[in-house]
């Protein structure tokens, strides 16, 4: 395509990496955050593993931080919609990897994928009561 923006184009035949796949959804559907309260079966087990993933800087689960916007389990595939507290988060790759690994620890889940979403925006209001309690114990000042 001829245009004013002639940066080198990506190879159209290149194999897409999972990194690219993270970005194919920008907007979460449904109420956020999702916490898996009414999940059953395999999904419930995935939620249990997600709860074990903590923020790298604070002893609080990423689920209680309100970062998980959705979980979809289809067959042996899990898709997690998730946001981050901060757009410049330096632990981005680390957290995304940990979430995928957590979901894949469940017997019956072969492949897990995280889709990073930025809307609706995250704020401290999305932290669950349990999460707020953990943060207070850690020494953070919260209402």
């Amino acid at each position: 395509m001829s245009s004013d923006y002639d940066r080198p184009r990506a190879d159209p035949d290149a194999t897409a990496c999972s990194y690219t796949d993270y970005e194919t959804t920008d907007h979460a559907t449904g109420d956020v955050p999702a916490t898996g309260d009414d999940a059953e079966g395999l999904a419930r087990e995935v939620w249990a593993e997600l709860y074990t993933v903590e923020d790298p800087e604070m002893p609080v689960s990423i689920v209680d931080l309100g970062l998980i916007y959705g979980l979809d389990v289809a067959g042996n595939e899990a898709t997690v919609d998730m946001t981050l507290t901060y757009s410049g988060c330096p632990a981005r790759e680390l957290i995304l990897d940990e979430v995928e690994e957590a979901a894949e620890r469940v017997d019956g889940i072969k492949n897990a994928e995280v889709r990073l979403v930025w809307s609706p925006d995250w704020s401290v209001d999305l932290v669950t009561e349990q999460g707020k309690e953990a943060l207070r114990e850690f020494g953070m000042s919260l209402e």
Binding site: R7, P8, A10, E23, S87
Partner: peptide, 18 residues
Amino acid sequence: DELGHARLWYDAIQQLGY
């Protein structure tokens, strides 16, 4: 912050094949 925002915008550009 600005690096994070740049990343968000470059991510959106990557969806277009870069």
